[in-house]
Nucleic acid binder design. Structure first.
Length: 254
DNA sequence: ATGGTCGTGTGACGA
């Protein structure tokens, strides 16, 4: 079973990119982030996929494409009574719990946006902790807006005080891993300089000045089924690309 | 050394 995650940076601007990606790669599941649309007709992208989304005008928004039927578990991260940002979608398909997130960026840092990011990560910790306690196997993918380690960015000094890399952010990400989760990509590739995002500015893509911020984390029983994991940089090279590229994993069926 | 890029929706703001 092939599962991908991709921040598309506007579904309106990237409709054809997503269609092409699904056609070329035929994943069983694709999780996308940053729809930047409240009600884009996602079902018209491919008749091979069922799709479920939580959208919002202009900002955020996540969706899941799946070849198998999807059952909604929740479309907001618990613990945020006044939080109306579309960043979380939890579903069940093929007896697997799937979570798609667009974790807050948090810049500028310090400031209220960074406070929101840390609070969101704590809420995420609480939700994943609950799933672990209930022994529900799950896979969480998306744009985490977290650079886990120095080797996941081209120049750690530049990123030192950034909301994506500063120590407090990395500690909060480490806490998620300490629930017993596996960073799927790192099981199959330990090299430095493997990135999922390259800024549009300053020739970051041709210079390979990127960062690895899109992740797939697996609970233990799903991790045991992991067959492959990779970053597919091809879509970043397409015309008018997203600034992110898909991360792909494969797990053994049933 | 400086400004440099997109997307949304038309003027900043978010990334």
């Amino acid at each position: 079973m092939k599962i991908g995650t991709w921040n598309v940076n506007s579904i309106k601007a990237r409709e054809e990119h997503v269609r092409r990606y699904l056609t070329d790669n035929a994943p069983d599941i694709l999780m996308v982030q940053e729809l930047k649309s409240l009600d884009f007709p996602l079902e018209k992208i491919s008749s091979d996929y069922e799709v479920m989304a939580v959208g919002q005008k202009t900002y955020n928004g996540v969706a899941i494409f799946s070849k198998s039927p999807l059952k909604k578990i929740m479309d907001a991260l618990p613990g945020g009574a006044q939080d109306d940002q579309a960043r979380y979608l939890e579903v069940e398909t093929n007896d697997i719990r799937l979570i798609n997130i667009y974790l807050p960026n948090g810049n500028p840092c310090p400031g209220p946006k960074y406070d929101y990011k840390l609070a969101w990560m704590k809420r995420l910790y609480d939700r994943l902790s609950e799933l672990r306690q209930d022994d529900i196997p799950f896979l969480i993918g998306g744009d985490f807006n977290v650079i886990p380690e120095e080797k996941d960015c081209y120049d750690p000094k530049v990123w030192q005080e950034d909301a994506l890399f500063r120590l407090e952010t990395r500690k909060a990400f480490r806490a998620l891993l300490n629930l017993g989760l596996t960073d799927a990509f790192r099981v199959h590739d330990t090299r430095a300089g493997q990135y999922s995002f390259w800024d549009y500015q300053a020739g970051a893509w041709p210079k390979n000045n990127g960062i690895r911020i899109d992740h797939v984390l697996l609970s233990p029983r799903i991790a045991d089924k992991l067959i492959a994991a990779n970053i597919n940089a091809t879509p970043r090279g397409w015309d008018k690309p997203s600034d992110h590229t898909p991360v792909e994993i494969e797990i053994a069926a049933a």
